[in-house]
């Protein structure tokens, strides 16, 4: 992509690239607790039919995924696995934090073992509130993420330093 490296990406090309990216999101499912049931309903049932949004919910590995949906209670013991998962994904990569536990610890806010929000570990693009959120809420979160991707300047993102979790 010489155009991208030169930093002069024509606007129509940017728009085209973003449209292509946002309607072919490969979503990795990282279900950790009860929110994963709602995620399963949104991703795997014909009733909600997430594929009509261009989301393919079944990548074979994080390396194929564009977005990871972290749904459920993140514990301190799970944190290294989440960091590793995030590092395995190829840039540009996005994170959807689904549910109160993943957002901030939720009902386990005072627990000795629960991480108080997955955003302490990986950067989060969309937070979905709820305990658990309905599948429609996850769909709306995906639409919000698509809007965000649509406004992105990929040249800027690709020129920048790769996101590495400390």
């Amino acid at each position: 992509m010489g155009l991208v490296e030169s930093g002069k990406l024509p606007k129509p090309l940017t728009s085209l690239l973003n449209t292509a990216r946002k309607y072919s999101l490969w979503a990795y499912q990282w279900g950790l607790a009860c929110c994963a049931i709602e995620m399963g309903a949104a991703f795997a049932s014909p009733r909600y039919d997430v594929m009509r949004l261009g989301v393919i919910p079944l990548p074979a590995s994080p390396r194929q995924a564009d977005v990871v949906v972290i749904s459920g209670t993140v514990t301190d013991k799970m944190v290294p696995a989440i960091k590793r998962l995030y590092e395995q994904m190829a840039d540009p990569k996005y994170v959807i934090s689904m549910g109160a536990c993943t957002n901030c610890g939720g009902p386990y806010w005072d627990s000795y073992s629960v991480t108080k929000g997955v955003d302490q570990v990986v950067p989060v693009d969309v937070y979905i509130p709820g305990c658990p959120p309905r599948p429609e809420a996850l769909l709306e979160g995906i639409v919000l993420l698509q809007q965000r991707i649509g406004r992105e300047d990929p040249a800027e993102r690709w020129r920048g330093d790769p996101l590495v979790v400390q």
Partner: peptide, 26 residues
């Protein structure tokens, strides 16, 4: 269950829940 570097014994009654020390139960 606990991560390897965990300090303390959380099911002891005198194990402080730090989140509750800095913020009252909402």
């Amino acid at each position: 269950y606990l991560p390897g570097e965990f300090e303390g014994h959380p099911l002891r009654k005198d194990f402080p829940l730090l989140a509750r020390l800095v913020k009252p139960w909402p």
